[in-house]
Write a protein that binds this DNA or RNA. Structure first.
Lengths: 360, 360
DNA sequence: GGCGGGTTCCAAACCGTTTTGCATAATGGG
DNA sequence: CCCATTATGCAAAACGGTTTGGAACCCGCC
C-alpha cells in the first residue's frame, strides 16, 4: 500500500506553531476549559479557521476516554419497525451530540456476540440492544453484570438484569383479543413470531388468556409460530387456513406476518376482511397503506426509541439501575377487521349495521 | 460526575505485566507482525484469555491511523428504500471488517455538512453519501477535491467529480412511459419528487421524452413536484387529479409517492387500476404488499449498495478515480396498472382481453 | 518597594496502542 | 572455540490530543 493518500491532516501542533503559541494554549482556547487572553484567542481562532483545523476525534477520545458514540444492535433492518426505532434513537442521539454505530445482526447469535465485543472494544459509551433471537448471549450478560451502559429495547432478554424499554405486549394481545371478540369472532387463529421471544409469548398469551376468560379458549392447534416476516406469515397463514377453514379471524404477532396472512388469504380466495379478519402488531407506517389498511396494535415506537436513549444517557453519566420501562400500546382500528360473515349477514338482515367500508 | 463507572478495562500493560513480558511482545503475539517464541506466545495468550483482554480500538486507531469505519449519510431512513440500501452496504461492510457510522440528515443541508465534518473528524476511512436535498454542499466538494474516499450513492450531485453509483433513472422513466403507452394510456400525469434532484429530473425527463417521441407530449401542467413521501404523493395526487380528471394514469417518481397517489385516487372515488393506473419507482419491498400491488420500476438496490461499498474500498486502499457506475433498472409489472377504461371497454366488447385481475 | 492575587501561557505527563531499532541469547558452521 | 546468524524480547518514539502544576508577568495596594 502506497500510503501518501491521507490528506496529512493538520494537527493541533501545526496550529500552535502557526499561531506562535503552545499546544496547550490552542487546546484551551478550543475547549474553553481555562481562560485565555483575548489576543491569543483571536490569533489561534484565526489560524484554526485558515488552516481549517478540526481536532482528531480519535485522539480526543483516547485522551478524554469518551467517544460520543453509542452502539446499536438490531436484528433486522428490513422490518420497517426497526428503521422507525432507529430514527427515534438517532434524533435523540444527535441532539445529545452522539453518533450511532450500527450493527445489523440478521438475528444471528454469533454476529450479535461479535458486534457487542467489537462495540465495547471501540469504546462506545453505551449500547442499545435489540435482539431477534432467543439464544442466550454470554457477552451481553457479562456486560450487564459489569454495569456497562446498556439498554435492552423492544425484545426482553429473559433472566438478564438490565435496564430496558418495552411495549406492553401482553396488554396489546388482550386489546387485540377484545377487539376481535367484540366484532363477534369466535373461531380465531394466532400466528406468533419466532418461538422463545418474550414479546411473542406475551402477545400470544395476552390474546389467548383473554379469549379463555371470555369462554372461548383458542385450541392449541390454532396457534402457530413463524419468522417475523411477510414470507413467514404467508406460509404459516396458508397452512393454518388450509387446516382450519373455519377460522374467521387471525391475530398476527407483528405487521409483517399480518401482511403475509393477508396475501395467503387472498391466494385461498378469502377476502379480507370479508371472509377473514386480520389483526397485526406494531403499526408500522406501511400498515396504513396495505390493502386493506391493517387493523393493528400500535407500539409507541418514537417514545420507545427516545426513552431508550434517555435511559442510556442516564447510565452513561452516572447511575446504573435496572429500570424496566413498559410503554402502553393502543389498538388502531382500520380496514382489515370486520364482523365475521355470519354475524354480518344477521345484522345486515336486521338492517342495523351496514357492511363497514374499510377506509382510512 | 463521579467517574469510577468505567470498568477500568484491562490494558495491554496489564497483560504484559501478568505475563511477565514487555508490552511490545504482547502486541506482537497478538498481531503476528513479528515472530514470537512458542512459549511466550502461549503464556501471553493464556493471560489474554484469563484477563479477557480486548485491545482498545481507539488507541489502535490512533496508532495505526485506520478506524475500520465508514460513514453513511442518508436523508430519510423512514423511506424503506434506504434501509434496503443500508442493509446491502452493511453486509459488504461487515464482511470486510468495517462498521457503519450512521448519519440521518432528514434532508437538511446544515445537518449534512455537520455530519460530514464530524465523520471526517472521527477519521472514518470513507463516506457513502446519499443526499436528499438539492442544496450544494461545500464540505462535500472540498472532500472530493482532496480525494477523500467518498462515493455518492443513488442521488447524483451535479457538478461534483467523485465516484458514484446510480440507477439508470432516465431509462427507468422511459420504461415506465413505454409500459403506460402500450397499455393504451394517452392522458398521463407525472408526479416528481423534490425539485432539483437529478434522479427526479432524469426519471421525469425519461418519461416525458418517450411520450413526446411517441407523439403525445405530456403538457407541462400535468407534471407536478412534491416530497418523497406518502403524504406528498397524496397531496400532489389529489391536486393533480382534481385539476385533470381526464388523466388515466400517473407516473410517480418513487414508490412512496405512488402509495400516496393511490390513496388520493381512492379518496376521489377512483379505483386503481380500474379508473386510474399508478406506476412507481424503486420497488421497495412494500410495493408488492400494498393494494393493489404496485407496478414499479425496480432499482437494483442490493447491487447498488454492495457496488458502492466496493468502490469505496477501492479508494481506501489506493486508487482514487471518479468512476461513475450506472446500474440498470427494470419494470416490475403488478396490479396497479391496466389499460384505461375506454380501451378496456373496447377490448372487452371485442372479447379479446378479459379485465385483468391484479395479483402477485 | 515588596507582596498578594490574577492573568496568560507553557512543559510535561498521560491516554493505550503500534512499530522501529537494538540488545541479548541461542544456534550452527567453519 | 569463535564468529556470524537467527531467534527473541525490550525500550522508546510515535499517534494527536487533554490536563495538571507551575512559571512568568502584570496589576494595584499597603
Amino acid at each position: 500500500m502506497q500510503n501518501g493518500l491521507e490528506p496529512a491532516s493538520v494537527t493541533i501542533r501545526d496550529v500552535a506553531r502557526a499561531a506562535g503559541v503552545s499546544i496547550t494554549t490552542v487546546s484551551h482556547v478550543l475547549s474553553g476549559h481555562r481562560p485565555t487572553g483575548e489576543l491569543t484567542r483571536h490569533r489561534v481562532l484565526a489560524v484554526v479557521e485558515q488552516l481549517n483545523y478540526r481536532p482528531n476525534r480519535v485522539a480526543q477520545s483516547l485522551a478524554t476516554r469518551h467517544t460520543r458514540t453509542v452502539g446499536l444492535i438490531l436484528p433486522d433492518i428490513l422490518n420497517p419497525f426497526f428503521p422507525q426505532l432507529v430514527h427515534a434513537i438517532e434524533r435523540s442521539a444527535i441532539h445529545a451530540g452522539y453518533r450511532l454505530l450500527l450493527c445489523h445482526t440478521d438475528s444471528l447469535e454469533s454476529l450479535e456476540r461479535e458486534c457487542l465485543e467489537d462495540l465495547v472494544a471501540r469504546r462506545v459509551e453505551g449500547v442499545i440492544y435489540m435482539r431477534g433471537t432467543a439464544a442466550p448471549n454470554p457477552v451481553l450478560e457479562r456486560l450487564a453484570e459489569e454495569h456497562f451502559p446498556l439498554v435492552v429495547l423492544d425484545e426482553e432478554v429473559p433472566g438478564l438484569v438490565a435496564p430496558g424499554v418495552y411495549a406492553m405486549n401482553r396488554l396489546g394481545g388482550r386489546m387485540a383479543a377484545r377487539h376481535l371478540w367484540q366484532l363477534g369472532h369466535r373461531d380465531v387463529g394466532v400466528i406468533g413470531g419466532p418461538r422463545g421471544l418474550v414479546s411473542v409469548c406475551d402477545r400470544v398469551q395476552g390474546f389467548q388468556e383473554t379469549y379463555r376468560r371470555l369462554g372461548a379458549p383458542v385450541p392449541e392447534e390454532r396457534t402457530v409460530f413463524t419468522g417475523f416476516s411477510v414470507h413467514g406469515g404467508q406460509e404459516a397463514g396458508r397452512g393454518l387456513l388450509l387446516r382450519h377453514p373455519e377460522l374467521t379471524a387471525v391475530f398476527a404477532a407483528n405487521d409483517l406476518i399480518a401482511f403475509g396472512v393477508i396475501q395467503a388469504a387472498r391466494e385461498l380466495g378469502r377476502s379480507v376482511p370479508g371472509s377473514l379478519s386480520v389483526l397485526g402488531f406494531d403499526d408500522v407506517t406501511t400498515a396504513a397503506m396495505v390493502d386493506p389498511p391493517l387493523t393493528t396494535v400500535r407500539q409507541p415506537i418514537r417514545r420507545m426509541g427516545s426513552e431508550a436513549f434517555r435511559l442510556l444517557m442516564g447510565q452513561v453519566r452516572g447511575t446504573w439501575e435496572p429500570v424496566r420501562r413498559q410503554l402502553p400500546t393502543r389498538l388502531v382500528e382500520r380496514g382489515s377487521t370486520a364482523p365475521p360473515e355470519r354475524v354480518r349477514a344477521v345484522s345486515a338482515a336486521g338492517g342495523a349495521t351496514p357492511p363497514r367500508s374499510p377506509g382510512a
